[in-house]
Design a protein around this nucleic acid. Sequence first.
DNA 1: CTCGTGATTGACT
DNA 2: GTCAATCACGAGC
Length: 182
Amino acid sequence: MKLLGTILVRQMGRLVLSGVIVEVEAYLGEIDPASHAYRGLTKRNAVMYGEPGHAYVYFTYGFHHCLNITTEKVGKAGAVLIRALQPREGIDRMKKNRGVNKLESLTDGPGKLTKALRIDRALNGEDLVASKKLYLVRGSGARINVGRSARIGIKVGLEHRWRYFIKGNPYISKTKPRSENP
DNA sequence: CTCGTGATTGACT
DNA sequence: GTCAATCACGAGC
């Protein structure tokens, strides 16, 4: 996944928060039962059908926001869920936003990183190329060791191993995919 | 350390 | 009415 190693920047006035993307999951519409777009276009997932390179932000579990980046052409649903970041700039501010002091648990989960970076549905549909509030910066290009596994937190579509992460990075999420069935 | 569970809103059936 | 791409915390090992 090309997004691994890319830097995600959140800018609020003079304040800059950023981190390196270290863990992602791919979701495709139609063929993917775990995707929000599996049952077709709805109000919530409309952004997934729009242009690639935009932010798809949704609210879940009554507490958390999750950040996705759309990947497919207009009319085709597809997005990549950003699951974890390695904090880079504005770390003190992120700690404040999260109310924690440990660097490793600052952004090692999809709900955590949106809270740390103050991402909410106001940023849904944001153009990550043109935006000044939330955008991507090409990484260093350093060689990275990519691992792969089943996706986390879903009950269906486990046959697709579409979770990608930087192997050995301490900031990836610790939760494991549910492999068995209750 | 690992495991289980409660919290709480919005969108879909 | 039901359920969700999650997290924090407390109990038990």
